[in-house]
C-alpha cells in the first residue's frame, strides 16, 4: 500500500496509453463530427440567408417592374382617353358640320320651294288677274259685278 516502486512507471504508461486511445477513438472523432455538423448548419444558414436575400432582390425587381407596368398602364389609359376625347370632339365637330350642312341644305330647299310656290302663286295670280280682266272686259261692267269680282279675286288671292 505505502510503497512507491516500478508500478508508478507502469501506471504512467497506462494512463498515457489510455489517454491516447480515448483521444483517438472517442474524443477526436466526436469533436470532429460536431464541428462538421456545426459547419454544415452554418453553411445551411448562410444558404438560407442568401436565398432570402435573393428573394428580396427578386421581389424588389418584381415590384419595380410592377410599378413600371402600372405606369405604362396609366400612360396607355391616358393616351386612350386623350385619343377618345379627341375622337369625340372630332366626331361631334363632324356631326355639327354635317348638321349645319343639312340645316343649310334644308333651309335652301325650303327657300327654293318657297320661291317656287311664290312663283307659282304669282303666276296663278297673274293668271287670275288676266282671267278677271278678261271677265271684266268681256262681261257687263256694273259696279256690283265689279265689286263681287273684286271680292272673289281677293278671296282667291287670300286663299293663296
Amino acid at each position: 500500500m505505502l510503497r512507491i516502486d516500478i508500478n508508478l512507471l507502469f501506471t504512467v504508461i497506462n494512463l498515457l496509453v489510455l489517454f491516447g486511445l480515448m483521444y483517438f477513438l472517442l474524443f477526436k472523432p466526436v469533436r470532429k463530427i460536431i464541428a462538421q455538423r456545426q459547419e454544415a448548419v452554418d453553411q445551411q444558414f448562410k444558404e438560407a440567408e442568401d436565398a432570402k436575400a435573393s428573394a428580396h432582390e427578386l421581389e424588389a425587381k418584381y415590384q419595380k417592374s410592377m410599378d413600371e407596368i402600372k405606369e405604362e398602364k396609366r400612360q396607355v389609359l391616358q393616351d386612350a382617353s386623350r385619343k377618345a376625347d379627341s375622337d369625340y370632339h372630332r366626331i361631334i365637330d363632324d356631326a355639327k358640320t354635317t348638321a349645319q350642312q343639312i340645316k343649310d341644305d334644308a333651309t335652301l330647299e325650303g327657300e327654293n320651294q318657297k320661291k317656287q310656290i311664290l312663283l307659282k302663286a304669282e303666276k296663278e295670280i297673274a293668271d287670275m288677274v288676266v282671267d278677271a280682266t278678261a271677265k271684266v272686259v268681256a262681261g257687263n261692267t256694273s259696279t256690283e259685278a265689279n265689286a263681287s269680282l273684286y271680292n272673289k279675286f281677293l278671296d282667291k288671292a287670300g286663299d293663296k
Binding site: V17, L25, L26, I33, Q36
Partner: peptide, 30 residues
C-alpha cells in the same frame, strides 16, 4: 513485480477503450 492496481487499471482501460471504440465508430453528420 506487477501489482494488483496495475492489473485493475488494465481492466478499467479495457472497459473504457471498448466503450470508446463502440461509441466512436461510424459517426455521421445527420
Amino acid at each position: 513485480d506487477i501489482s494488483e492496481s496495475v492489473v485493475v487499471t488494465w481492466i478499467i482501460m479495457a472497459v473504457m477503450v471498448l466503450i470508446a471504440f463502440i461509441l466512436g465508430r461510424n459517426l455521421r453528420i445527420d
